[in-house]
Structures are given as C-alpha cells and as structure tokens.
Amino acid sequence: MTKLSLGTAPYLLGFEQLERLLERNAKSGNEGYPPFNIEQTSDNSYRITLAVAGFSQRDLAITIEDRQLVIRGRQHDETEGRVFLHRGIAARQFQRSFVLADGVEVGEAVMENGLLHVDLTRAEPETVVQTIQIRKG
C-alpha cells in the first residue's frame, strides 16, 4: 500500500505548502512549557493565553515569522549576590510557535496577572467568481 500525502493527491493542487507546515510544526519542539489555552472569542476571533508567571514584559518577545506566531520568553538573571538555600523556581526560557492560516492577523497582546493574552482575528474571505474565457487553439 502506498502512502498518499497532500502533495500527491490529484485534486489538491497547490497544497504542498500545507504539508510542509504540518511537518515543520511537528518538529518545532513545542514542549509542555509554558501551558497555554486557545479560545474562540467570536466567529472570527481567537485568543491565545500563555501562563508566564515570573516573566516581565521585557522578558517576552512576540514575532511573526513565515506565517508562524512565535512567542519567546527569556528571564534575565538577577540573582548575582543572592544566596539561595533552596531554588525551586527555575529561570527557564521558552519558545512557543503557532501556525497562522492565511487571513489570520495578530492583534494586541496584553499581560495580566501572570498571563499573556494574544488576540487573533480572521478576515472573512470574499467569495470571488471568476470566468475563464476559452480560446480556440
């Protein structure tokens, strides 16, 4: 039995990029930290919420790279001169990636009570009907 992929299905023309996106997302190394929620806030809007306790606004960066929303966190080490008897709160860094569909735009990002909220909206696609003229060859 042969494996049928998106790029080889005869009626799915131009979807090779979708298959590459799925492979890239599977390899992105998104581990379980930090935990996050994705909620649909209306028919065309979403909110991603990451639990980023211990991170300040200056420790976080949000970018869009090749149709991926990338959220990075890196805490600055401010422990010089301090003596810990126990250190159970690790200062770790993270990177979370979310693949964005065409038409999805990133809105505002808000930090509130140790939670980072990133709002997304999806533009309502226009229905376009195009007539192709057939010429005699």
Rank of each mutant, 00 (worst) to 15 (best):
T2S: 14
K3I: 05
K3N: 09
L4I: 15
S5N: 15
G7M: 02
G7S: 15
G7Q: 09
T8P: 02
P10Q: 11
Y11C: 06
E16S: 09
Q17I: 02
K27D: 14
S28L: 04
G32H: 03
Y33S: 02
Y33L: 07
P34S: 06
P34Q: 05
F36M: 07
F36E: 02
N37S: 06
I38G: 06
E39A: 11
N44E: 12
N44P: 00
S45W: 07
Y46C: 05
R47P: 00
T49K: 08
T49D: 07
L50E: 10
A51W: 05
A51E: 10
S56D: 15
R58Y: 04
A61R: 12
T63V: 14
D66P: 00
D66K: 14
V70R: 11
R72G: 05
R72L: 04
Q75A: 12
D77H: 02
R82Y: 07
F84E: 11
R87V: 01
G88S: 08
I89P: 02
A90K: 12
A91F: 03
A91K: 11
A91M: 10
A91G: 13
R92H: 07
Q93T: 03
Q93G: 13
F94L: 04
Q95F: 01
L100H: 03
V106R: 13
G107W: 06
V110A: 13
E112D: 15
E112A: 12
N113M: 10
G114S: 07
L115Q: 13
L116Y: 11
H117A: 08
H117R: 07
D119H: 10
A123V: 06
E124W: 04
E126V: 03
E126W: 00
V128L: 13
Q133H: 14
Q133L: 13
K136E: 15
K136A: 11
G137C: 03
G137V: 13
